[in-house]
């Protein structure tokens, strides 16, 4: 999970889930705690599902929020 997807692609990561920034990948401090939690829960969930997904090439998984 990372924000700088081009870096992850360059170093050869295969399952990539985008995060929202470098200093706070999984929760924007300017938003309420509940919203941060919701975002984190969603994106980590996408990452867990990615671990179960068959892929053939480097893949950046889509996130909703």
């Amino acid at each position: 999970m990372c924000n700088l997807v081009p870096v992850a692609l360059t170093v050869g990561a295969n399952r990539i889930v985008p995060t929202i920034s470098i200093p706070y990948p999984l929760g924007d401090p300017l938003t309420p705690k509940e919203q941060q939690y919701k975002l984190r829960y969603h994106r980590v969930g996408v990452a867990l599902d990615a671990l179960t997904t068959e892929i053939e090439d480097q893949t950046v998984f889509k996130v909703k929020f």
């Binding site: 706070y24 999984l26 929760g27 401090p29 984190r40 969930g45």
Partner: peptide, 24 residues
């Protein structure tokens, strides 16, 4: 040292998402 630590110091779960992993 490569980024502004304020957000992660205030809530380390934004980098290490332990809270949601425990929920899962």
């Amino acid at each position: 040292a490569g980024f502004d630590p304020a957000a992660a110091d205030a809530d380390p779960n934004v980098i290490l998402p332990l809270d949601v992993m425990k929920e899962y």
